[in-house]
Amino acid sequence: MNTLTIRLGGMDDIRSRVAQAAKLAAEGKAVEVEPTLNFATYEDMHRVLAPSRLAIVKVLAGQGPLSIREVARRVGRDVQAVHRDVTTLINAGVVDRAEAGIEFPYRNIHFDFDVKTAA
Rank of each mutant, 00 (worst) to 15 (best):
S52P: 06
P65H: 13
E70G: 05
H83L: 14
E70Q: 15
I56S: 01
T41K: 10
R47W: 13
A61R: 01
R84Y: 14
V71T: 05
V59Q: 00
A81T: 14
Q80W: 12
A72H: 02
D85Q: 12
V59A: 08
T88A: 12
N38Q: 10
V86K: 03
R47G: 00
L66I: 01
V57R: 01
R69Q: 09
V57W: 08
V57G: 02
I68T: 07
K58V: 09
P65I: 12
A81Y: 14
A61Q: 08
V79L: 08
H46T: 11
V82C: 06
V57E: 02
A40T: 14
A61G: 06
I56K: 07
H46V: 13
V48G: 03
A50T: 04
N38A: 15
R53I: 09
G62C: 05
H83D: 14
L89A: 09
P51L: 06
V48S: 06
G76W: 12
R77V: 04
V59I: 01
N38R: 10
A81M: 14
Y42L: 15
A81N: 13
L37I: 04
S52M: 10
R47C: 01
T87S: 15
T36P: 03
T88L: 08
T87I: 13
P51S: 07
L54Y: 11
D44L: 02
L37C: 09
R47S: 02
R84F: 13
L66Q: 00
D85C: 10
A50H: 11
K58D: 10
G76K: 07
G76Q: 04
L89D: 06
A72M: 11
D78W: 11
L89E: 04
M45L: 06
A55F: 12
Y42F: 15
L37T: 00
F39A: 03
Y42S: 12
D44W: 07
S67A: 09
F39D: 06
R74M: 03
T41S: 04
I68E: 09
A81F: 11
Q63Y: 00
G64H: 05
Q63A: 00
V86E: 04
S52N: 08
L89I: 11
A61I: 02
R47K: 03
E70L: 14
P51E: 01
Y42N: 13
V86A: 08
V59Y: 07
F39V: 00
Q63L: 03
S67L: 09
Y42K: 14
